[in-house]
Design a protein around this nucleic acid. Structure first.
Lengths: 341, 341
DNA sequence: CACTGGCACTCTGCCGCGGGGAGTGCCAGC
DNA sequence: GCTGGCACTCCCCGCGGCAGAGTGCCAGTG
């Protein structure tokens, strides 16, 4: 009984603090939530919760605010993901259905997430390594330079300029193009890299330098998993961060400019198909300790292709945000999945 | 003599205000700049400048700050573009020279501009309409869908999924690909659009629906000049905007999320090869009235391919910013120009 | 034993006050 | 036309006091 009420108190504190953004005291707590006890009793519980590190006082004789640990408990045990309203679901669908190509899908998704959650949205492009080769194209730019274009099953297009060193006649180019496509089309990117290995031998010694230049460029595109691109939106919502502003927002904006940081924010979940919540200090970046990240993978049923998520102040509406992130991920996954066929 | 000194006073006010960010008074003015007169004299000049609308007082008995009109005069007649130091020039060069492809060039440029000016940088991708067709590629996705890839002379790649409606056998696909390339390769984009017009007639009536689907998709890519993409960076520098923060930064962040707004910010100069400065209310966007934009076109000697620029508070170092923007534009123009060959 | 009401205490936020300082406008004088 | 001087205005800052909110503790009660 006692333990239960303490948890209930913590839940109430989190909810009130999230909605009012002000430290919450014992009196206000009993008034808003109908816990059937007096403020004094609540005070005892609060003292205990504070001892255990779930809440804290900004100053003596102020109300309590949740700590990161408190939010953690709230997310893990005291809340359930809030499903979206049907109106919201319909809005998501109609907003995403008009998308033309991959760029468009990603752009729309990031906007959608941002407006839905009123926070900063982050969407990663579908990963190369988990998609397969659709087509490889070689386009001559000059006698010794050509453009290598790699098209993947997710609709992504990678391009790269290759210096062949030696001259590359059209006939050879055609042959090479045919060979490349024959041995890689429909194959997973990492596997395709393997297939390239013995391709050199099918060409004459004179041809090899140029061929090898192309091959190694393609290999890099395939293997290096170059720049896993990340797009973000809704930065204007940072303005809602709070009054202790400039110090808070500066490092966040800086962090958001670094692709690497964004990738790490989304990354590293044991099972990426499960909603992941990183709260405050749990984040892998020093500038984001007053910030929480809600992220999840998206893709087909069998596979996660990339991740998306939302970033906001630790004091955020976790159930709502988690619901929105999960719902958007499902829709996007479905759409990207279709493109797979 | 008198007029000259008044201008000198205005110049001094702008410079001091930019560096201190505080209203500047008559005493401080004579101390820092060695105008050979007394504060009382300066006060008379200031009163005149205020009457004419070049400066204003935040409150009675405070110093003066420049108005938009004051900055305008400063930029037009009282300052010269400040050339970069050789160290800076060298840094620009080495930073941009490592670029691999067009994406990379643009990304690096935007970072460079942001760090150089300590402000928000905006770079537009080289325009399609001024470049020419390098290659058109058709890649089958399914029996009735294919991916159209357009590669331009600036290294840009446009992709689009086409629903052909009817089935499109490989042989026809090859024929169509050949025809498309034959009639458009090396041609300016708008001109290429014209060349497509009579292409339909070379195919049989049964083939035409599918062919036309492809043609119209390509036409759109060529003509519509779809999404002239704009990239920005250095948003963290918004944190330096000032203490009257949240109200100021919010609309700016919102404006920066709109591609259309960014385009208009850069756009619409009579001669885009000349540095353009938009000060405060001169901007075409309501949220950016406390903001100035310094922009200029970049490209080859004969042609402007796109624009880039910097956005910051009206209270900015105009000579330095203008110098940096101009220098970066020149280097980028040179690099993009090389790719033209 | 858990809960309650009461009480004393602490700290914040806010208001009004007053002085110092910076800056101005004006005027009389050189 | 420039200058020094002077009175005036207004902002900013620190101070003290007061109300309010919240706490911790304690003694009392079912």
């Amino acid at each position: 009984m006692l333990e239960d009420r303490k948890l209930e108190v913590l839940r109430a504190i989190v909810e009130d603090y999230v909605s009012t953004q002000e430290p919450v005291g014992s009196r206000a707590l009993v008034e808003r939530h109908n816990l059937g006890v007096s403020p004094a009793t609540i005070r005892n519980d609060m003292a205990a919760l504070e001892d255990e590190g779930y809440i804290a006082q900004p100053h003596t004789s102020a109300g309590r605010i949740p700590t990161d640990k408190g939010y953690r408990l709230f997310v893990d045990r005291l809340s359930t993901v809030k499903p979206l309203s049907t109106a919201e679901r319909r809005a998501i669908q109609s907003f995403l259905d008009g998308a033309l190509d991959l760029d468009d899908i990603v752009t729309r998704t990031v906007r959608l997430l941002a407006t839905l959650t009123q926070q900063v949205a982050v969407v990663q492009y579908p990963s190369l390594s988990r998609s397969s080769v659709r087509h490889v194209e070689l386009v001559p730019l000059s006698t010794t330079r050509l453009l290598l274009v790699l098209i993947t099953s997710t609709g992504r297009v990678e391009q790269r300029v290759v210096e062949t060193g030696a001259e590359l006649p059209d006939s050879l180019l055609g042959e090479l193009r045919a060979q490349l496509n024959a041995s890689t089309a429909g194959v997973r990117l990492p596997d395709a890299a393997v297939r390239l290995e013995d391709l050199t031998e099918r060409f004459t010694v004179e041809q090899r330098p140029a061929v090898n230049a192309v091959l190694s460029a393609l290999l890099e595109s395939l293997v290096e998993e170059p720049e896993e691109r990340v797009v973000l939106g809704g930065t204007a919502n940072l303005a809602r961060f709070g009054p202790d502003f400039p110090q808070t927002i500066r490092p966040v904006l800086e962090a958001l400019e670094e692709q690497m940081v964004l990738l790490r924010l989304l990354g590293e979940a044991a099972d990426p198909s499960v909603l992941q919540v990183r709260i405050g200090h749990e984040n892998p970046h020093a500038g984001l300790t007053t910030t929480s990240v809600v992220s999840v993978g998206y893709g087909t049923e069998s596979e996660v292709l990339a991740k998306l998520g939302v970033l906001g102040p630790t004091r955020m509406d976790y159930p709502g945000t988690m619901g929105a992130v999960r719902a958007v991920a499902r829709y996007v996954g479905r759409i990207v999945g279709e493109g797979q066929g």
